[in-house]
């Protein structure tokens, strides 16, 4: 059943989503840390914005990015439309608020506990953020996994900016939609099962991590 076509599609899905989550983590975690630790004007507004962005409809993100990247759009010159890069950007936009918001929550809680101790040591703001991120790393990984799950199963944005081009931008979700509408249920179901399996594995990993975290918290 695992023919070359399926492997190609699954591999692209994973590549795009993992990349998107890595980028989202690189932006979202420091952002969350800044919001958890920093005291600056506009902090509450930024927090509210991020929480609002968590509910971004993927189709709208796809549309917005399409307008930016299309030939006549402001970034059309980059010729990114209908490339995996465009899909990575779209998913990154969707996942970053999730990771930033979750990071902020986790790091705020930890900060409440560590704050006086770190201030007594005269730690700099950067050292405080570094300490918090490091000690919250397991909790943060759960946010990455949740983001990966969301990215892998997302369809609206990648369909619009990727275009579901065979051998180029076809990922699991877009392929399933296409094959189902073409009546090619065998391929659609195979891909569906693989996607289900991946989601399952990610959720198992989440549960395992959470139980480990809880055990740590009680230690």
């Amino acid at each position: 059943m695992l023919d070359g076509q399926i492997i190609e599609i699954v591999a692209l899905s994973l590549r795009v989503s993992v990349f998107a989550v890595i980028l989202a983590a690189l932006i979202g975690v420091p952002l969350g840390a800044l919001l958890a630790v920093g005291r600056f004007p506009g902090r509450n507004l930024a927090t509210m914005t991020i929480n609002a962005l968590m509910g971004l409809p993927p189709v709208v993100v796809g549309l917005g990015l399409y307008l930016l990247l299309s030939r006549s759009g402001p970034l059309g010159i980059l010729q990114l439309l209908y490339t995996p890069t465009a899909m990575i950007i779209a998913q990154m936009i969707l996942v970053t608020p999730i990771i930033a918001s979750f990071s902020q929550q986790v790091l705020s809680d930890l900060h409440a506990e560590y704050d006086e101790m770190l201030r007594a040591m005269k730690a700099t703001r950067l050292q405080v953020m570094g300490t918090l991120i490091r000690d919250a790393r397991h909790a943060l990984v759960t946010a990455f996994l949740a983001g990966l799950g969301r990215a892998l199963s997302e369809i609206g944005a990648v369909m619009i900016v990727g275009g579901n081009i065979n051998h180029a931008t076809r990922v699991m979700t877009t392929a399933i939609a296409l094959e189902t509408s073409k009546g090619n249920l065998r391929l659609a179901v195979s891909l569906g099962l693989i996607l289900l399996g991946l989601a399952f594995v990610i959720n198992i990993a989440l549960v395992v991590l959470r139980t480990r975290l809880e055990r740590q918290a009680h230690a």
Partner: peptide
Amino acid sequence: FQKPVLLR
């Protein structure tokens, strides 16, 4: 501190 605060 009265209550020890230790890193994880």
